[in-house]
Design a protein around this nucleic acid. Structure first.
Lengths: 347, 347
DNA sequence: GACGACTCTGAAAACGTTTTGATATATTTT
DNA sequence: AAAATATATCAAAACGTTTTCAGAGTCGTC
């Protein structure tokens, strides 16, 4: 009855002390070989490595984090990871993080601000080294939280309120929207319907709408309020809004939606009503996500460089974490229109 | 020059000791109010809570995890989260976990076994309370790792090798495949092409293929090897395989693909070649993921209850973690065919 | 053969919690 | 009013690492 080793349940955890004993050295020495430190005799190093192998020892990174004050964890707030845009972005974020030996904690908030706040709290308690926010809506609580938070935070494909001081990675949404509408006009379109996003709480929604307005006004085309509706970036929204357009007195010649999902909703709605895309009505989307190629006709869409956006967000965040550098305030990446089959020229 | 508080960089971390001092009590007492323990005078409790608020104190869950030996972390291995099936499943897993106060660490391995092994190691080092694996390919290393791992693990929409003893949550893939092919036969189809998945390393691929074979054999239909191809569950695979079918001497009347993505690839290929679905060729998918509704004609597909699968995986895992119960070995959920517009009857 | 400069090692102090005794006071039961 | 119990508190140990410090050995140089 000698051995009362620390076994809890069935799990007998082997720790650095066990390795030290087995190898006949102190735990400091084991720690040194674990971290590839200098000043360990080759012979001793080998012995320790053997002991580690024999005992199947895996260091406890919780303990390590505690003393090092570094968890190598990045918390990510996403609005809805089941969506193609966010799941792609998330996958690029994960890739970049993993290459830098960081791991990812996901908070999928489904537009629920309470859940967002809850996750921000959890991230803080878990001592994550950094946070990436892919969501823009905010309330007082979240704003205050972010203001007092010292954990490095970057906004990815979203912009913080001016009262919150975090770098962000984006495209120039207003310019992108402006450019595509200008292009539509250049193709001879005048009846240009717009399916936007939330303009009050989401800068992305606001800016894309502004770009649309600016392009029309600049070209002397009057804005028909019947042809402007706002949804929540989902396919269903696009479908329903398109339905209302189809019931109007005049039909637009093209519909510009500020997300691919909404554009596809609109496209399907048109097709389901027996009309042809792009012969009867053209459709243009935004994001250039993978859905553009799964639909027929393939969707013309404004390309966001989401791989770059994801990777850049991580790079900046890590620089803030490791470099203590003030870093950039704002990164604006370039966009372009990718032409496929859902847009035709009227000329 | 009195105050040499522990500030590192700019961050001055406030800990339980600071709260204790401010409230004029010991840290044990603070800990008790933190955990809602008994034996704290109401008056003291309020004072402590006030101190917590004043100092904006957030407990360090790393330290807590260390002593409690509980991280409330679940590690998830996913093959590819940018895919609609996995991103949906992941989102249901996240939801269930979050409701039970667990947080999720994602490892997106993109079919890279080295990355999978790396993540399994990381999960172990991070002392996650449990692991969910949504991937089936394995090599010796992973197999050995899982065999010696004491962390509760469940396979979600995947089955472990018999040499690895973990519960799994699935549908009956063979029966599901059998049922749908039988249904096709009942609709008068005889020329039934099959786009399968990996049959050697993936039980899901094997079983769905077996179901196809069994249904044909049982109905006295001979298997035409020209009409059987295997892909990797991606849209592109479905497209390319369909292309080879279209170049054959005879055309099948229906194509059954074992993932929605491959089915959509096939469907698009058919449409791109100027044929009509389902008039010329019918298409049936597998998973009933959201893509079934984004495509025209809408895709008929074998429904997997992925919400249930995700939730059940988490439930079982948590039961293993908290209950120490042996728990179930295997959960088989029910499937059904969801009829949409891509399949027609020949009768 | 003394001095410094490396190399190697281990004891002990941290990191921020929870938990376990121990002790003291209040309340109830006998 | 003594005994038993319940309430309230704190000091100290524990969790598994890294890191600091001090000491011991080895080497080359003057």
């Amino acid at each position: 009855m000698e051995h009362h080793r620390k076994e809890e349940g069935n799990v007998l955890a082997v720790n650095i002390k066990d390795v030290a004993e087995k190898a006949g050295v102190s735990i400091s020495t084991v720690s040194r070989v674990l971290n590839n430190g200098k000043y360990v005799k080759q012979e001793v190093r080998l012995a320790v490595q053997q002991a580690i192998k024999d005992l199947n020892f895996v260091p406890n990174s919780i303990a390590r984090s505690l003393v090092r004050k570094k968890t190598n964890l990045i918390g990510v707030i996403a609005s809805d990871i089941s969506t193609s845009f966010f799941s792609s972005t998330l996958s690029y974020i994960e890739e970049a993080a993993s290459q830098n030996r960081y791991n990812i904690l996901v908070g999928n908030i489904k537009d629920n601000l309470d859940k967002e706040l809850k996750y921000l709290h959890v991230f803080k308690e878990m001592q994550v080294d950094g946070i990436i926010v892919m969501h823009e809506k905010m309330n007082k609580h979240i704003e205050r939280f972010l203001q007092t938070l010292t954990t490095p935070t970057v906004f990815c494909s979203a912009k913080p309120r001016t009262t919150v001081d975090c770098p962000s990675v984006n495209i120039d949404d207003m310019q992108a929207s402006y450019d595509t509408v200008k292009h539509l006009i250049a193709l001879g379109h005048r009846r240009i319907a717009f399916i936007g996003g939330d303009t009050k709480e989401i800068s992305t929604g606001r800016n894309r709408y502004d770009g649309y307005l600016k392009a029309l006004v600049e070209s002397g085309i009057s804005v028909n309020p019947e042809w402007v509706r706002f949804g929540n970036f989902k396919m269903k929204d696009g479908y329903e809004i398109m339905q209302s357009f189809l019931q109007g007195e005049y039909l637009p010649t093209v519909v510009f939606a500020v997300s691919d999902d909404m554009a596809v909703g609109a496209l399907n709605c048109i097709v389901d009503h027996g009309l042809k895309v792009p012969d009867d009505i053209s459709v243009v989307g935004f994001d250039d996500s993978s859905i553009t190629e799964t639909v027929r006709p393939k969707l013309t869409s404004l390309h966001q460089p989401i791989q770059q956006i994801g990777q850049m967000s991580v790079d900046i965040l890590i620089k803030m974490i490791e470099g203590n550098s003030p870093g950039v305030k704002e990164v604006v990446l370039s966009h372009k229109l990718v032409e496929r089959d859902s847009l035709r020229s009227l000329l």
